[in-house]
Amino acid sequence: MITVGIDCGAKNTKTVVVKDNKIIGKGTSLTGFDQAAAVETSYNAALKDAGIEASDVGKIGGTGAGMDDIKQADVKVNEVKAMAKAANYYFPNARTVTDVGAEEGRAVKIDENGKVIDFAINEKCAAGAGAFIEAMARALEVDLQEMGPMVLKSDKEIPMNAQCAIFAESEVVGLIHAKTEKQDISKAIHDAMASRIVSMIRRIGVNKDVVMIGGVGLNPGFVDSLKKQLEIDELFIPEDPAYGAAVGAALVAAEEA
């Protein structure tokens, strides 16, 4: 049985193809304004990557903020359920899962079967880490890919208020004027954003193992801050964390087939 999971997120649309519990293809596209088109592009890319035709696909699970634009989907899977499934798939010992994306952050407490016990989603005024870090990379005139790694070069602790992204942004401007080193500012930004996510995780409790999915999982600076603030030695991140929710959606689709 082949199933597909499509995660239409705020920034990127990710698709995975799963065959007998194994990932055999992936595809991605920028979500942009035309969500349906983005879904189409990413879906086709994944089919091509897997070397199969659309007719080979049994069921399709859709998830993400743009879920309603995934016309192909047979099953709509809420984001929390998707991330819980994915975490359980990659790491059966997962009990706390966090998904940090462009616009939204979530944390879920799950049992040994990947069932949702409790969850937290950031509220309106708490910015998602991804989009904020991107905006700050522009302010610092640093390539986004360098933002995370440069954090590791800094050992400064600059307290920054992360209650409000706008407020944090004006603090960053202040640091730039004060001629603070870029790597130190970058660390302050990552620490502040990680602190918001950690606050949210603490709401449901930090139970080991802690798993992180979502594109920000590729940012070593953020991951480092998160680990330190959660006071854990190991944070489990799957190989392609951005595809986490899509994998979860494909697995749910397989269950419901």
Binding site: E123, C125, P159, M160, N161, A162, Q163, A192, S195, R196, V198, S199, M200, R202, R203, G205, Q229
Partner: peptide
Amino acid sequence: SHEPQDVTEPHIFGMFCP
């Protein structure tokens, strides 16, 4: 202590004063 912190979130709803 005027430091940012992440420990009070489960205890006090965010609309109360810093």
